[in-house]
Design a protein around this nucleic acid. Structure first.
Length: 496
RNA sequence: GUCCCCAUCGUCCAGAGGCCGAGGACGCGGCCCUUUCAAGGCCGAAACCCGGGUUCGAAUCCCGGUGGGGACGCCA
């Protein structure tokens, strides 16, 4: 049997979410950095599901996370649904390995059994807290007498396994932060295997990173303080630790860790709000990282090409939704019409609007609307007048533009003129509108605004001539005539 | 409280001792374009946290302070 040594080919990185929640934008960015690093260096991107917390993990969450990653275009080389030579990729399927590792640590004197009750530990912590101090495990079980152990075992007392933290000085070179050192005395003898025989995060993450041949650990800043524990574990297991790169956290506008109260935090939510995956990726990439120059709009290929861990900033970053919106608008403006159509369709459907069967016409409509859209959801409202049979007149539009004298007559005249405008294209339609206004002695604006209300029901829309042409002669004329009727009956109503 | 990380415009970044009288982007203000709304173009306001060093010279290096964040679980 041949062992594949991918590390010789390129770096192996991993994204290891725990399915206790949806895919958070912070997690997505961590995944993105890992992915970019793997792609940049022709390495391997591994996806591993950390579901050792059986209580809080769920299969639905796994599905959601996978969907989120796929939507962003972050494909994994090894992991759920694609498999790979270093599986299983769910920690729940690797329990025996963690138990074996824990047993080995005990056998080799790096860990010991701990029979302390959770209640006692909790009490000690509370007491210490009351004194304003932090409590560290007191090693009560480190040197239990053999007889005592025999007693405890005889009654099958629950036992956990704790790592015996050596006094070795733990320091490491972090790619984004430089050298980070911890005083080993500040690290307690942490549990590696719970009394229910399940590993803690520290054990599973290290065992997996070893067995999966991970060369670079790119993860959130919040793991810095866990790193010395991991380092110690790697050492006890006799393995050279991977290289670490701790990326800063994403904060909300109040500089607190981004959470639900700041608004949307899940990738799925942004997707629903009408953001394009490419914009999301671009934006996330620039949160805490920069290519080193002033480029803002970078394609995935460009990101891959310029990504480097050294370019990651050390400070936390505030999630700036306004910039995301702007960026999304930029991507909407540039997306090929065909792709934009596909992206917009579900949002039209959600709004109860029909998707035009004439693709060419649909594309022209989209081209008219796109400079006005920041999110895909905007298209529903923007497109409504073009997709419904009868437009509704917005009250303020009626007030603002239909009260001028003789508006009805002007509009009627335009309707008549438009019947014979040939060809019915922008230059000719514009000439007709302006000509009609001139003939009737009103400023073009008056007629234009009234006409806009007639065909869209609103005070704002894309350029009126483009709108008329896109709607076509029949619909345009019909809408103008309908407005004439509307004004007539409205006046009648007022008189009586 | 202890340990760790961080510190340039409101926000995201550029800046790795002289090129910085600090550059880009979002947002904001103004002007232009214009039938409205956008988009676009141009212009503008806006920052090196404070105090000590080191150096001929510091946004850049060192120390301290302050501020912000994170971690202190048989959660991950």
């Amino acid at each position: 049997m041949r062992i594949t040594h991918n590390s010789a080919v390129g770096p192996r990185v991993r994204f290891a979410p725990s399915p206790t929640g949806y895919l958070h934008v912070g997690g997505a960015r961590t995944a993105l950095f890992n992915w970019l690093y793997a792609r940049r260096h022709r390495g391997t991107f591994v996806l591993r599901i950390e579901d050792t917390d059986v209580q809080r993990s769920s299969a639905d969450m796994v599905t959601g996370i996978l969907e989120g990653l796929r939507w962003l275009g972050l494909d994994w080389d090894e992991g759920p649904e694609v498999g790979g030579p270093r599986g299983p990729y769910f920690q729940s399927g690797r329990l025996d390995r963690y138990r074996a590792a824990a047993a080995r640590l005990v056998a080799e004197g790096h860990a010991y059994y701990c029979y302390c009750s959770p209640e006692r530990l909790r009490d000690e912590r509370e007491k210490a807290e009351a004194r304003g101090e932090a409590w560290q495990y007191d090693r009560a079980c480190l040197n239990l007498a053999p007889e005592r152990i025999a007693e405890l075992e005889a009654v099958a007392a629950p036992r956990a396994i704790r790592f015996k933290v050596p006094s070795t000085h733990t320091a490491f070179e972090d790619i984004v932060h430089g050298r980070i050192a911890f005083d080993p005395r500040s690290i307690e003898d942490f549990v590696v295997l719970r009394s229910d025989n399940h590993p803690t995060y520290h054990l599973s993450v290290v065992v997996d990173d070893v067995e999966m041949g991970i060369t670079h650990v790119i993860r959130g800043d919040d793991h810095i303080s866990n790193t010395p524990k991991h380092l110690l574990l790697f050492e006890a297991l006799g393995v050279t630790p991977p290289t670490f790169a701790h990326v800063p956290l994403i904060l909300g506008a109040d500089k607190k860790r981004l959470s639900k109260r700041h608004g949307a935090t899940s990738v799925t939510e942004y997707r629903r709000q009408g953001y394009l995956p490419a914009a999301m990726v671009n934006f996330l990439a620039l949160l805490g990282w920069s290519p080193g120059d002033d480029r803002e709009l970078l394609s995935v290929a460009e990101l891959v090409d310029s990504f480097s861990l050294e370019g990651i900033s050390g400070g936390n970053a505030v999630f700036n939704v306004e910039k995301l919106e702007w960026m999304n608008g930029q991507y909407i403006a540039r997306l090929p019409a065909g792709e934009l159509a596909g992206a917009v369709e579900p949002f039209l459907a959600d709004a109860g609007l029909p998707v035009p069967r004439d693709r060419g016409w649909f594309h022209r409509l989209l081209d008219l609307l796109r400079p006005r859209a920041k999110r895909l959801t905007d298209f529903a409202e923007l497109a409504r007048p073009f997709l419904v049979d009868t437009v509704e007149y917005e009250p303020h539009a009626v007030e603002k533009h239909l009260d001028a004298p003789d508006v009805g007559a002007h509009v009627a005249a335009l309707a008549a003129a438009l019947r014979t405008t040939d060809p019915f294209d922008e230059p000719h339609v514009e000439a007709t509108v302006r000509g009609t206004a001139a003939e009737r002695g009103v400023k073009a604006g008056v007629l234009i605004h009234a006409t806009r209300v007639a065909v869209t029901g609103r005070t704002t829309s894309p350029g009126l001539f483009e709108v008329l042409v896109l709607l076509g002669r029949e619909r345009s004329v019909a809408r103008l005539e309908r407005l004439v009727n509307f004004l007539a009956t409205r006046r009648a109503g007022r008189v009586s």
